[in-house]
Write a protein that binds this DNA or RNA. Structure first.
Lengths: 239, 239
DNA sequence: TGTACATCAGTGAACGCGCGTTCACTGATGTAC
DNA sequence: TGTACATCAGTGAACGCGCGTTCACTGATGTAC
């Protein structure tokens, strides 16, 4: 009766960005009886399975939807079992938050890789900057629940995780702006605020489009506004 | 025993931006017995008193802290009484949201008024644009609970209220940018996205400073980043 | 000016809900010998 | 190779909490006559 949920990759983000899923393969081995190893009393990878389920809850309903009991329910396990692997609900939220941030960064990297490089270094840096900015907003619109979770407030003792250095997204942005600066395309006076301004602009745009007064824009108008806003921001960096 | 809470202006935003507080004066008249009229069985202005209390909850804890029962408790009234004046909890939240948005706009206007006008129209438009942008972020930092409430998601049927036209903050911004454009200081190609870019930039900056990876910046560093980001955005508008 | 009465604006008890967490427990696993 | 046993990883019942909302009610108010 339990363990009848679909395999985790169907309903979870479950990408290999973190090293936690090493024994997923082993976990899914089908035994001679036809049941999977997850049917065992000892689940084998419950921490990951719970994080998968909780991430799916976040995707569907944002951070408020991350409910420990529900995640356990979806995995087919008692709520108590979660406490073997997480200190409590804040700890679970934190795990989901990391997944959500990683998913965002992945999307940004994928978008950069999707367009072809151009020979001129400055032009290429511009192309990449534009790609990660647009990917940022696109991810927010495509996965609002995960996006909100990636930036939800955390009360736990892991708040210091909210550091710039811990954001791969920031590192990506910073590298691209470095290249732009190296090509001489950034006004030196504004260089110190380039990352902040670029990130703020795309972050704010995403939220205004999601929950704010720009929520009524349709798909086509949206794209125009996103591209136009990106233009203004990029223009603000140049000399 | 009840009605022993302080007068509303002590603990509520309760500014005259909405026309609902017309009978506040009458409400506060002291009777010959020394008690105020609010001691009457018929409160006289319960809708406003509840909104005041709920706004105070929002200020202290953001939108999640707006709890109908608690607002009623603070006013000294049964929770049921609230249903004489609000359709339900979403309706109350909506009232608080309007208060929060109005408080934000007030702060922006006050900041514009705080600096002296300069003769040159373009320079003056720039001064005002900078003032409202910085006021926006300052308000978010000074009143995080209200700021979050002003932009929290609403599920009720009043979602259409989340229109650009309904935001006085947007009207303010739009007027200033019009003046900037009239002075020839806005690149015509970027004019259509000027409001969106400016608003997005300050909105995103506010949220990154509040809950995000910039939360660790101290007061002085903060101000530098705010001013620098504003510079980048303004530079992005110009030719 | 006084009175009957409809209406307005409150009351208090209760409901169902689902949450996070704790408790004492037991079945499964793997290691020492 | 088999067995004893410590440890690991689950179970299910229960707790307290506070919420939004509904119910049948009653006290206060103001208007018609």
């Amino acid at each position: 009766m339990k363990h009848d949920s679909p395999p985790p990759d169907v309903y979870a983000v479950n990408m290999p960005w973190d090293g936690n899923s090493v024994n997923i393969g082993q976990d899914e081995v089908v035994t001679p009886t036809g049941s999977t190893q997850r049917d065992r009393y000892h689940h084998g990878d419950l921490a990951n399975a719970l994080t998968d389920a909780a991430t799916d809850l976040a995707r569907r309903g944002g951070p408020e939807a991350v409910v420990l009991r529900e995640a356990a329910r979806q995995v087919g396990v008692s709520a108590t079992a979660a406490y073997r692997h997480f200190a409590g609900h804040p700890d679970l939220i934190h795990a989901v938050k990391e997944r959500a941030q990683a998913a965002l960064t992945d999307r940004m990297q994928a978008e950069v890789a999707a367009s072809a490089a151009v020979p001129d270094p400055g032009e290429d840096a511009l192309r990449r900057l534009r790609a990660i900015g647009i990917a940022y907003v696109r991810f927010a619109l495509a996965e609002p629940g995960l996006f909100r979770t990636a930036f939800c407030r955390a009360d736990g003792p892991q708040v210091q995780q909210m550091e710039l250095a811990n954001f791969r997204a920031y590192q990506l942005l910073s590298e691209v702006i470095d290249q732009l600066a190296a090509a001489g395309l950034v006004d030196p006076a504004r260089r110190p605020y380039a990352e902040t301004a670029a990130w703020s602009g795309m972050h704010g745009l995403a939220l205004l489009l999601l929950d704010g007064p720009l929520a009524r824009l349709t798909g086509a108008d949206r794209d125009v506004v996103i591209a136009g806003t990106a233009d203004v921001l990029i223009a603000g960096l140049g000399r």
